[in-house]
Computed example of a mutant assay.
Amino acid sequence: MSQIDPPPASLSDSNSDILRAISAGLGIMSSGQRRIAAMILKDPHWAMQSNVKELAARAGVSAPTIVRFARTVGCEGLRDLKLKLAAALAVGAPYLHRSVTPDDTPADVARNVVGSVTAVLAEWQRQLAPADIERAAEAMHHARRVDCFGTGATSNFLAQDMQARLFRLGIVTNAFSDAHLQLVAAATQTREDVLLAISFVGRMPALLEAVAVAKERGATIIALTRTHTPLAALADIVLGIDVPRDATMRVGTDAYVVQLLMIEILMVIIGLKRGPSTISRLGEIHQILQTHAVDSDDPSLLHWGWRRVLRGEDADPASKADG
């Protein structure tokens, strides 16, 4: 069969609960599709975490048959099927965590939570678009200025973290969470600038308004968000963070960890682009922090500082020898 069958109305109409849709459609499925359906219904957690080859091997079908099955039950493809499976499992599970049951021991909780995040990360890694990451890194590397926008507790923290990392690499950068300051920053952007907008939700009105202003000014818009959001639609480059929604949190642990990893990947690539001088710069910063910072690995520095404070003396680094 060379073409993908359109989803039957009886199935696509009920795709709000994918497990119910699969069960309801068993009677009109082919034998191969029934084997896939039985496999998913028997172990939906495993199905959500497995790739197309693993699914095909267990069901005894070809990889294209897995994709056709996803379309048959009203999904856009395998990734959409997995996201709907994750949503269905989250709805049916305790609100503390989709992978934890009330009878789990602390050891079970640790294993299940870590295993869930690991599975999500593996699937997210398979979905990464290296070309888009490269384009984003290149744009920030050459930018006159990079403004990082975040709206909400998590996005604001991530924007601040991004700004701190870019600053260490020698890039002129700012981080804004206030809607008014975001508009001011957007109004002063040019074609030489980059706006990095961070939002897992991807539909915060004030953020979208500021991004639209920067886009009108000619800035390159990079969005760290889910791929099918209004923010993604505005962006020139989308760094996708499509992971299952949390049952109760707007930005759950999966989304938080994936965004941190994307920032880390970007920083390493940008650092490599900026060459040996940047590596030397980072080494100098590390040395200064080790020598002067109160959180130095050398505890004598901290103790020396506190001794001088307790004596009521000025903390003169040149006088360290008296400690």
Rank of each mutant, 00 (worst) to 15 (best):
T278Q: 05
F69T: 02
P244C: 09
A63S: 06
V194N: 09
A315W: 14
V194I: 07
A214L: 10
K82T: 02
C75K: 01
T291C: 07
K53E: 03
R274M: 12
D108L: 09
S277N: 02
M204K: 05
M262R: 04
T101V: 10
I237T: 14
D132V: 05
M29G: 13
I28A: 07
T72F: 06
S199C: 06
S10Y: 03
V113T: 14
Q33N: 09
A233F: 03
D316S: 07
R245A: 02
S280F: 04
L239P: 00
N51H: 10
R71N: 14
I279F: 09
T278I: 08
L266A: 10
T291P: 07
R20C: 06
P44E: 15
V294T: 06
A24E: 07
H303W: 04
A219N: 08
N15D: 05
L266D: 08
M39I: 00
P44A: 13
N112Q: 14
D17Q: 10
S23E: 15
A63P: 00
I263C: 13
P244K: 01
L239F: 03
H303D: 04
V114Y: 13
P102V: 02
S31N: 13
I198P: 00
Q189N: 05
V146N: 07
P205G: 04
R79Q: 04
R126Q: 07
K82L: 08
A70Q: 05
G283K: 08
A212Q: 12
S155P: 04
E209P: 06
Q125P: 05
L301G: 11
V294I: 13
A185V: 02
M140Q: 12
W304V: 03
V100D: 08
R165D: 01
I265F: 05
Q127H: 08
Q160Y: 09
D161G: 13
I265Q: 11
A212H: 00
H180S: 02
R308Y: 01
